[in-house]
Amino acid sequence: MITIVILGAGNVAKHLYTAFLNQKSVAIVQCYNRKGIQIHKDQEAATITNDLNDLKKADLYILAISDDAIAKVSSSLPFQNKLVVHTSGSVPINAIDNKNSRGVFYPLQTFSATKKVDYSKIPFCIEADQEKDVIILKNLASILSKKIYDISSGQRNVLHVAA
């Protein structure tokens, strides 16, 4: 089982939370956002924090936050040597502070608050500094979709602009 902390409270964070909520091979141990708000109606208050210093231990930390906040939040994380990924199409992998293992878990999809998502039709673009982390991200993406692609930051940016 892979344990996940989701950082963010926007559409991507909410949709990923919902997608992973009932998966047997995934456990969302916590969600962080600046306001400490619930991102899903079934989320328990004990799994929400607005303090980065209170983040629980997990296998993967997903930064589903605004593009311009990725570098600042990743450098503020109070741990090192963990796998930290962002979900942006236009931000390079190296925006994540290198005190942690870095990756990208980018669903090539526009997310809206009201539209239900069919993940089986969504391509996931994966990137990581280490091959072992690529495998983790591919395994995670494969829970939701069969369309998984290794894509560099430059290639992902071109796709993002084209989409």
Rank of each mutant, 00 (worst) to 15 (best):
A69N: 15
Q80F: 04
K82P: 12
L63H: 06
P123S: 01
D68V: 10
A71Y: 03
I93G: 05
K115Q: 08
V91D: 14
E44I: 03
L52D: 07
A71E: 06
N81T: 12
D51H: 15
V84N: 12
D54N: 11
V91M: 15
D51P: 08
A46V: 13
S76K: 15
A95N: 05
K56W: 00
S120E: 12
K56D: 01
L60A: 06
T49W: 00
D68I: 10
D59C: 04
A95K: 05
N53P: 02
T110I: 08
I48V: 15
N50E: 02
Y119L: 10
P78Y: 02
V104K: 02
S66D: 08
A113Q: 05
K56I: 02
D118I: 14
P107Y: 07
I62F: 03
K116V: 05
Y106V: 01
L55I: 11
T110D: 02
D97L: 13
S74L: 11
N94W: 08
V73F: 07
V73W: 04
A95D: 01
S101D: 14
V85A: 14
S90T: 13
S90L: 10
P107N: 03
V73S: 07
Y106D: 01
T114D: 02
F79N: 12
L52C: 09
N81C: 11
A113G: 00
T47D: 11
K57Y: 11
C125D: 04
L60R: 15
V73G: 07
K57I: 08
F124M: 09
S88G: 12
D68L: 06
P78C: 13
G103N: 05
S88N: 10
I122R: 01
V84Q: 09
A45S: 08
L77T: 13
L52Q: 06
V84K: 13
L60N: 06
A113S: 03
L55A: 07
Q80H: 05
A46E: 14
P107G: 05
K116Y: 04
D54Q: 12
P92R: 13
L83Y: 07
R102W: 06
A58R: 10
V73C: 08
F111N: 06
E44A: 07
K56P: 03
N53A: 14
N94D: 15
S75F: 07
L77P: 09
N81D: 14
A45C: 14
T87W: 06
S74G: 05
A58E: 08
V117Y: 03
V91Y: 12
P92F: 15
P107V: 03
K115Y: 04
I48N: 13
L63G: 07
N100I: 10
E44C: 05
S112D: 02
A46G: 06
L83V: 12
F105A: 13
P78A: 14
A58M: 11
D118S: 09
D54P: 00
